[in-house]
Write a protein that binds this DNA or RNA. Structure first.
Lengths: 407, 407
DNA sequence: CCTAATTTGTTAAAGTGCTTGACAAATTAA
DNA sequence: TTAATTTGTCAAGCACTTTAACAAATTAGG
């Protein structure tokens, strides 16, 4: 039992809670769900579900759709989110790229744009660049800002979601305590939510990706930095100060290379995007035979190009990736031992190389984790690819929009 | 928002839920709590609390007690658990020690006994030994098994709480899938709950120890093995298969000493009780000047004696503990970065050395963790000392007893 | 010492929103 | 066509809350 549910139920809220539970169940059930199934899943009676559903239909949030009857008996009426209810935007402000997605309330992507970006240029320039791109994307759909019901934003730093800002971010100079959410909300005139990119990554993969419906999942974002997002029991887990999942500065080798954080042998300094690029340049300097040597000047080599070369069969590139995968595997082992998740989703540009990168991770976990945890965990690449964070932002935004409209 | 509370509220249950929430709030508020405060904390009205409290008093689960009025106005009537409601037992089956506590429903310890123990002797012998000790403890109180309402048991291995057994435990040969809970429940004729010792450790420290009322806490048990228990949002966090918190086999040094699990440089192999004893023997073999050399034969030196010698000022012993603390610090850093807890409670025999062991841990965390997480986390020794696990078992048992009586 | 102010706890009426049980609707099977 | 089956709706009843008024027990102040 160990209840400790210091949680109560004023009757005022019970319809509210049931209504939102029904709404979420409809949202995250692909292909629609009937009233009967809603009742079963929520331990309610059909009679209790009916008026709530009627209410949601009247508000225009959900729609009825016919279904092919599977068994005998009256065929169920399927319920699904009204895609035409409105639009939301999801924005991924990465370290080196800015991605914006516009989707409808059913999370169907309507338009997408990505441009190079430099988060270190600070709030002023970055925000005006983001503003321009958002307007551009909207223009392609003949929409304007007024047609957006909510916007979700992801940034590569530890966020305080309630305050809408980042706190001492290692790779976002100039952004510390800048009121990001409020500035954007004022600029765009609609509700904005701000979250860490890895946190949104888990949310996206949980809602529409590889971790659909899992109870405990971790999302590892391998980019310039390395971060993890944790999802526990239907919620993003943020920890005491919102910095949970900071896997990037886990010590892998006490005598390893110097990290930007001042310590030695951090995961990020050994297997992050920059580290991979550095290793490629070192290989070239050692005159090793690799396609990467053709890139001129060598300073422009990025981790993504190493990944592409590896996919084409370049042995040196493959070796570099395997090594990085192995080191990431050590960190993920710790995560698996501590968190014991159902699934670990690896995302970020490099992860799209697939098994080449994943196999060393799987091997490390199988070798080092407790058997019970190691056999239970599935390790896969992000189903949403580089869109994980954006889709998480969109999930957030749709949450805001739907639950506001449901009152 | 990000509700995703796929949780519903049939009205049948609402009184049930409020009743149990009130009961738990009374349990875990030291010194009693008034109806008004209950109402405030649960967002209910006083009028809703009154009949529930009346009900609990009638059942004999709680009592009213006068309070000195603090401010003007009618003084509140404080409510507390009826200590005379009954008795429970908490049993800590450790690797080398067996501890049994008997307490009343207010978690006040009535009797305690500890004997040397060897979990590797398997279920048959261990259970009959435990049975004997329990009867002994009860005899000192003039009680018998019939007077116990519930019993909580902790074991040093990964448990499946619902099944009441352990799964592939590394240090419990012969116990794999043995129906521990059901065997004991039949033997003793009362409800038994089975949990991992570190999990019960967090629960104990959260309920009555150093982590009282914290939202996120981790308890690190340093004994023969090293394990962590995680407490999140009012609940023990168990993960997908119940093996969350397995910190003992985190890799600290890829080239370190061989661990019983087959890998190299696991935390347990470097900073666990056995590793500390081995280091002490090595120091003696090197003829270093230490009080530990007086122990004959050297094979009998234990980690606890190293800790005692360190407390008396023995420099070699202090050096060994500092080194272990440093290595534990590396692992705790990973935990802090991943979990971002409010507090980390270090327990187990060695931890009682206090700051000598804790300072290197604090230093490592401050140096290596993200500033936001490092400054937020408090690192302390277990307030309940070696009783943490037993008190967790008692907390469990009282939960079972109270919530069953409340229907 | 007495009254006002304040806070706690109780009670009855009203209201919310569930369940129960009966029934209508829409299909397949025979 | 009828029976069986399953889905969805409706009205009555009921559980449990809130609202609002009041009783109780104290302190503060004249």
């Amino acid at each position: 039992m160990l209840s400790t549910y210091i949680r109560s139920l004023p009757t005022q809220n019970v319809k509210y809670i049931n209504k939102h539970a029904i709404l979420d169940l409809i949202r995250f059930k692909p292909g629609g769900i009937s009233r009967v199934e809603l009742a079963q899943r929520l331990s309610l009676t059909r009679a209790a579900v009916t008026p709530i559903v009627t209410d949601l239909i009247k508000t225009g949030l959900i729609l009825e759709s016919r279904s092919q009857s599977a068994s005998s008996g009256r065929p169920p009426i399927l319920l699904e989110i009204n895609a035409r209810g409105g639009f939301v935007a999801g924005i991924d402000m990465g370290a080196t790229h800015l991605t914006i997605l516009v989707a409808n309330f059913a999370a169907q992507v309507q338009a997408e744009k990505e441009i190079p970006f430099d988060i270190t240029k600070g709030p002023d320039e970055c925000i005006s660049q983001t503003d321009r791109l958002l307007r551009e994307v909207l223009a392609t759909l003949n929409l304007d800002l007024k047609s957006l019901s909510a916007i979700g934003v992801g940034v590569p730093g530890p966020t305080v979601a309630e305050a809408g800002m980042v706190l001492s971010p290692p790779i976002m100079p100039g952004w510390d305590r800048f009121p990001i959410r409020d500035t954007l909300a004022k600029l765009w005139g609609c509700p904005v939510s701000l979250n860490n990119d890895a946190e949104l990554g888990v949310l996206g993969e949980w809602a529409y990706g590889a971790g659909r419906g899992e109870e405990n999942l971790a999302y590892i974002k391998v980019g310039t930095g390395i971060g993890a997002g944790l999802f526990i029991d239907g919620q993003i887990y943020r920890g005491a100060t919102g910095s949970a999942g900071e896997i990037g500065h886990m010590t892998i080798d006490e005598n390893g290379p110097l990290c930007t954080c001042g310590n030695r042998g951090c995961l990020e300094a050994m297997a992050g995007g920059k580290a991979i690029a550095v290793k490629a340049r070192e290989a070239i300097a050692q005159n090793r035979r690799t396609q990467l040597a053709e890139i001129r000047p060598p300073e422009t080599i990025t981790a993504l190009e190493v990944a592409k070369a590896a996919a084409r069969g370049d042995l040196v590139a493959q070796e570099i990736l395997t090594e990085a995968g192995n080191q990431l595997g050590i960190a993920i082992t710790s995560l698996v031992n501590l968190f014991n998740p159902n699934i670990v989703v690896v995302g970020g540009g490099i992860a799209q190389t697939g098994d080449l990168f994943l196999e060393p991770i799987r091997k490390a976990v199988l070798k080092r984790s407790l058997p019970a945890a190691a056999y239970a965990v599935r390790i896969t690449t992000a189903l949403l690819g580089k869109r994980s964070t954006c889709m998480g932002a969109i999930t957030q935004a749709i949450s805001t929009a739907l639950h506001k409209n449901a009152e």
